[in-house]
């Protein structure tokens, strides 16, 4: 196994990082490039930039901004939000992004995953999945960036991730919406069920509020990485302390 990855996620709106609770009510958390540089220096293993306005508003990404971030970082980063075509993905990668993450557009047109994988290789293609508990199952939601457009996709989460993998996804980021922004811990049951069905890397998202939550998801769900936003942006948890705690607890992390 590789070192378990700690991945701050920056929800970006017009170059600013924002954070909402359960995807609603956004609060300004600072300049995106400044925060990215800070996390790089603190030992983040990877960064995700999610353009929260691009997808619901049908806008395209600001590729010049992607280029500025690529110039700044010496760690990998992926770009999410608003990527609906192979051409848009190409422009993100050409401007220095390491991976592109697609979510709602992949649900609309699953062959977008295979088109991108064929062109760029599976390692560049991340499929993000927003998932919500429904009875004793989990269902995929789409258009979650906009509370008025958010809705169920009619797909079972555990079926969709297997389909995405078969189509050529190189990694799944599973965002457990019931936990998102509430800092009560990752959804270990759901992530363990997802891990058992995949042979590609799985990244946990949603619910991180304390160092013990990271330990739990690595030890119990076997995920390759854990993504978190507000717990880092708010200063509740600093990456160096988190990594020291994980290393002391026997989880291999990059110092």
């Amino acid at each position: 196994m590789t070192a378990r990855r700690i991945i701050p996620c920056l929800d970006v709106k017009d170059g600013r990082v924002v954070k909402g609770v359960r995807f609603e009510g956004h609060v300004d958390m600072g300049d995106a490039a400044d925060l990215a540089a800070r996390y790089r220096d603190q030992g983040a293993d990877e960064l995700v930039f999610y353009d929260i306005t691009a997808s619901p508003e049908g806008r395209t990404l600001d590729y010049g901004w992607v280029r500025d971030i690529a110039r700044l970082l010496d760690i990998p980063f992926s770009v999410a939000g608003g990527i609906r075509s192979v051409e848009q993905a190409r422009r993100c990668l050409d401007n220095g992004a390491d991976k592109v993450s697609i979510n709602s557009p992949a649900l609309e047109r699953p062959e977008l995953i295979s088109d991108m994988a064929d062109r760029f290789g599976a390692q560049c293609v991340v499929v993000g999945v927003d998932s919500k508990r429904s009875g004793d199952d989990w269902l995929v939601h789409q258009y979650t960036g906009d509370p008025t457009a958010s809705r169920g996709s009619g797909r079972r989460t555990l079926d969709w991730i297997v389909e995405a993998q078969a189509l050529g996804a190189g990694e799944i980021v599973l965002n457990c919406m019931d936990e998102d922004g509430v800092r009560n811990g990752y959804d270990i049951d759901q992530l363990s069920a997802a891990r058992a069905r995949l042979t590609i890397p799985l990244v946990a998202s949603g619910g991180a509020g304390a160092a013990s939550h990271f330990l739990g998801v690595f030890e119990q769900a076997g995920v390759s990485g854990a993504l978190a936003a507000s717990v880092f942006h708010s200063g509740v948890l600093a990456i160096p302390e988190l990594k020291t705690f994980l290393a002391d607890s026997g989880v291999e992390v990059r110092p």
């Binding site: 070192a3 990694e171 590609i200 076997g222």
Partner: peptide
């Protein structure tokens, strides 16, 4: 080839 606790692609930081 993927294996237990060894997803493929090999993606991430290794020593």
């Amino acid at each position: 080839e993927p294996g237990p606790d060894r997803p493929i692609p090999h993606m991430g930081w290794s020593r």
